[in-house]
């Protein structure tokens, strides 16, 4: 059933192109959810229903919905309502919905039809995934935990804002810094004119 694979792949490519070309973060995220769902269908057609389910639950489900919620909840109040209205005008849901409908039709077809003649060849179940992760790939799991820790600390440091009382104590430094920051345009204008 290769055309099922290619159809889901085409949806993934289309949704990803839409993701990176949207100027509005919310619109991009909506397409990104579809892109992840398409990846899940690709896994399903390749005979990995467990990974497909994880992809839906973890990526499309938890992480992406969290992203959309955070982006929307960062702005609360009167102005935010108007802003959200401008983010989601009438027709914006049509694109992601059509792509998602294609994927839904595929899944319904695959489930109704049952196991096909050649696809999937072998089905990888949860037990095999677990045995691989805690057998030969045990070190990989440990390494992934280090990776998450490093990402967490880096994000924490870059997202950290100084406390208000500290801010007042060190305002003069901040003023100087922002002044330097504004004038330091990337073209290198902050270099002395007479430098060799």
């Amino acid at each position: 059933m290769p055309w099922m694979f290619y159809l889901a792949g085409a949806v993934a490519v289309a949704a990803t192109i839409m993701t990176i070309t949207r100027l509005n973060a919310i619109h991009a995220l909506l397409y990104f959810v579809v892109s992840l769902l398409a990846a899940a269908v690709v896994f399903y057609t390749l005979g990995a229903p467990f990974i497909a389910a994880l992809e839906v639950i973890i990526y499309a489900g938890a992480i992406m919905v969290l992203f959309i919620f955070v982006v929307m909840m960062l702005n609360v109040g009167e102005r935010a309502v108007a802003m959200e209205r401008s983010w989601l005008p009438g027709g914006i849901w049509v694109g992601p919905a059509v792509l998602a409908a294609v994927l839904f039709a595929q899944v319904v077809y695959l489930v109704m039809r049952g196991p096909g003649p050649e696809y999937p060849r072998t089905v990888v179940g949860p037990k095999q995934v677990g045995l691989a992760l805690y057998g030969p790939y045990l070190m990989g799991v440990e390494l992934a935990s280090m990776l998450l820790l490093a990402g967490l600390v880096a994000a924490y440091h870059l997202g950290w804002r100084r406390q208000p009382e500290q801010e007042s104590k060190e305002t003069h430094f901040d003023e100087r810094r922002t002044a330097v920051g504004r004038s330091a345009v990337r073209a290198g204008t902050d270099r002395p004119a007479g430098a060799p």
């Binding site: 990776l147 490093a150 990402g151 600390v153 880096a154 994000a155 440091h157 810094r177 920051g181």
Partner: peptide, 22 residues
């Protein structure tokens, strides 16, 4: 995984002085 454990902290390290622009 080793490559990513090397790269991800580097994003934070390179931008460590976040008050500067460069």
């Amino acid at each position: 995984l080793g490559l990513e454990i090397l790269s991800v902290p580097l994003y934070g390290l390179i931008a460590f002085l976040a008050a500067r622009k460069r």
